[in-house]
Design a protein around this nucleic acid. Structure first.
Lengths: 255, 255
DNA sequence: GCACTGTAGTCCTCATGAGGACTTGACGTC
DNA sequence: GACGTCAAGTCCTCATGAGGACTACAGTGC
């Protein structure tokens, strides 16, 4: 894999990566100290650090100052791309059901540019509920989210508290607004984590995240809810299953 | 944004990033030489290089040895997540239609582990058509793809040539197999680009890519086609629109 | 028992210095 | 005019050296 003429730091990175892939050190465990690696590979400290930097940006390892460098556990969480509305399926592959929901805040906020651009003019006063999901197995945050709800329906209701809602959020909105969720648009993007996301998701800076923006509309096209979800990009898999009859409009060979 | 006690390389990176965001230098243009930056910021060369390294892993800039460091054009290409089967919509936001199609190869290959795991036993002999999409405006590759087709249907047919197919690929397979595409599973992942992808997509090493694995099945559940598509993660947006009536199975409030 | 302190081990920052590899373009030769 | 050569400018690699910041833990004093 590595050519003989590759730079030292690259060869060291390759060596360590393949060792990790073979289980030494195993996920979660500590790597040898930088000074040990200097001795082992017979190179200088900056070279070792450059090699570790490669693995760090790849998400293979993670360093904590004063403690050590650790092998990251990169098992991926499985998400269903349209599972927001709880279609009844008991798919054991979906790990997200076990996640603990935690409401960070629930208060009126000025919507950011990208969100307010999607809103109808009269609904620009909004309530924002921010949530975080913790994986109870690893005790690590796996998802960050925000729901932007039209103020006219939700101001002064129980949604303005940080309590966990009694039933699915969209059902609450339907009750409060008297309208039905009938259409949705999803937008998926990969981008660098913001400082806030780095903190809340406990990620190394510069990590990529998957960002989903979900817009739900009523029959009259007004926006009932906009929600955002953010996951660490290297810890998530998005699954989608569908019938093609709906997708294939006409087969030319039949015309 | 940057605290006063942030390390030098971080402050330099922040300064350059915000300048770039404000248009200097503009996308595609050259950055000042590293030695110029050394003088401007009054730091050493490794520090400047570390700052540029941050921007490089963020995808903001790109360096070419012997030539210079350039601001990357990070406009994103829009993709529809289920548009593979050409549902007739004339959405001007979709830029992909303008892409130039290029068949790299079309020959029998040993399927990789992840693919053959999805295949039925008798169809493990497959034809692989590899394609690349070029954006004629920028003349840059935007997408890399591979279609894994069951050998029993396609060996010896025109699909074994690198010619562009006369009609949509799935229609060809339907004709040749006598079966219909009725169901599909999509799997989306973000991962580091392989060496091959770095070459073919002309990316800096270590870049993240979005990887879609699409499995299409017939009514009897046999696999008709597996296709993979790979895009640079920071140059793509995935869009999806759908009716919620299909998704929301039952509203408890009505029970 | 508790709180504080010091120390060792760890990763992080940054300077200096040197050589190499790659690209471009000017120049000279044929 | 075509081709090869050379030099300048660029980014890339790597060593050495030093200091700092952070964490965990053992020991001390109360």
């Amino acid at each position: 894999m590595t050519s003989a003429r590759a730079p030292k730091y690259q060869r060291i990175a390759d060596a360590l990566r393949s060792e990790i892939r073979n289980g030494t050190p195993p996920a979660g465990e500590r790597m040898p100290a930088e000074t040990d690696l200097v001795e082992r590979f017979g190179v200088s400290l900056p070279t070792v650090r450059q090699a570790l930097g490669v693995l760090r940006t790849e998400g293979v390892i993670e360093s904590r100052q004063g403690i050590g460098t650790f092998v990251r556990d990169n098992r991926r969480l499985q998400r269903r791309s349209r599972n927001r509305y709880g279609r009844a399926r008991d798919d054991k592959k979906l790990l997200t059901a076990h996640l603990r929901h935690e409401i960070i805040s629930a208060q009126p906020e000025e919507p950011p540019q990208e969100i307010s651009a999607l809103l109808d003019e009269p609904t620009k006063r909004i309530l924002v509920r921010r949530r975080r999901l913790i994986n109870p197995d690893t005790n690590r945050p796996e998802e960050l989210g925000a729901s932007y709800l039209p103020g006219e329906y939700v101001f002064g209701t129980f949604l303005e508290t940080t309590d966990v809602v009694p039933k699915a959020l969209f059902l609450c909105i339907e009750d409060l607004s008297g309208k039905r969720y009938v259409r949705a648009e999803d937008k998926w993007q990969v981008r660098i984590a913001s400082d806030d996301e780095v903190d809340r998701l406990e990620l190394p800076t510069g990590t990529n995240v998957v960002h989903l923006t979900h817009v739900a509309r009523a029959a009259d096209d007004t926006v009932l809810e906009i929600s955002e979800s953010v996951w660490p990009a290297d810890r998530v898999v998005i699954l989608d299953e569908y019938d093609l009859n709906d997708e294939i409009s006409a087969r030319p060979s039949e015309v």
